[in-house]
Amino acid sequence: ENVVSAPMPGKVLRVLVRVGDRVRVGQGLLVLEAMKMENEIPSPRDGVVKRILVKEGEIVDTGQPKIELG
């Protein structure tokens, strides 16, 4: 899985990584606000952040790609 998608609709509060960052499985990639709760979205695997496809403040839909890992 190279693309991390939104598990639920919500607002991107914070992006916790930058392009080029090495990430580990379970590491937080971003914080999504859904139903007035903050949810940290974890990396599904070890890898390197290739692209960030969302911006802080953006509203995302379920299944929308957010971060691409290499």
Rank of each mutant, 00 (worst) to 15 (best):
E1Y: 12
E1K: 12
E1Q: 13
E1A: 13
N2D: 12
N2A: 11
N2P: 07
N2T: 15
V3P: 06
V3N: 06
P7G: 14
P7H: 11
P7A: 12
P7W: 10
M8W: 15
M8I: 09
P9W: 11
P9H: 10
G10N: 03
G10L: 02
K11Q: 06
K11Y: 07
K11R: 11
V12T: 02
V12G: 01
L13F: 00
L13G: 03
R14C: 11
R14V: 10
V15K: 02
L16R: 04
V17S: 00
R18A: 12
R18S: 13
V19F: 03
V19N: 05
G20M: 06
D21T: 06
R22W: 14
R22P: 11
V23R: 00
R24W: 11
V25T: 12
V25I: 13
G26N: 07
G26H: 06
G26M: 05
G28C: 14
L29K: 00
L30P: 01
L32P: 00
E33I: 10
E33G: 08
E33T: 05
E33P: 00
M35Q: 12
M35R: 10
M35V: 09
K36Q: 14
K36V: 07
K36A: 14
K36E: 14
M37C: 11
M37P: 03
M37F: 09
M37V: 13
E38F: 09
E38M: 10
N39V: 15
I41W: 05
I41S: 02
P42D: 05
P42L: 14
P42M: 12
R45C: 13
R45D: 05
R45V: 14
R45P: 01
D46Y: 07
D46V: 07
G47V: 03
G47C: 05
G47W: 00
G47N: 02
G47Y: 00
V48W: 14
V48C: 11
V49E: 02
V49N: 00
V49L: 00
V49C: 04
V49F: 00
K50T: 13
K50S: 10
R51C: 09
I52P: 01
I52L: 06
I52K: 01
L53C: 11
L53S: 03
K55S: 11
E56F: 06
E56V: 14
E56M: 09
E56W: 06
E56Q: 10
G57H: 05
G57Q: 05
G57F: 06
G57T: 04
E58N: 06
I59H: 12
I59T: 11
I59F: 14
V60G: 01
D61C: 14
D61G: 12
D61L: 13
T62Y: 12
G63D: 09
G63S: 07
Q64H: 09
Q64P: 02
P65I: 11
K66F: 15
K66S: 15
I67H: 01
E68V: 15
E68D: 05
E68F: 11
L69W: 06
L69I: 13
G70E: 15
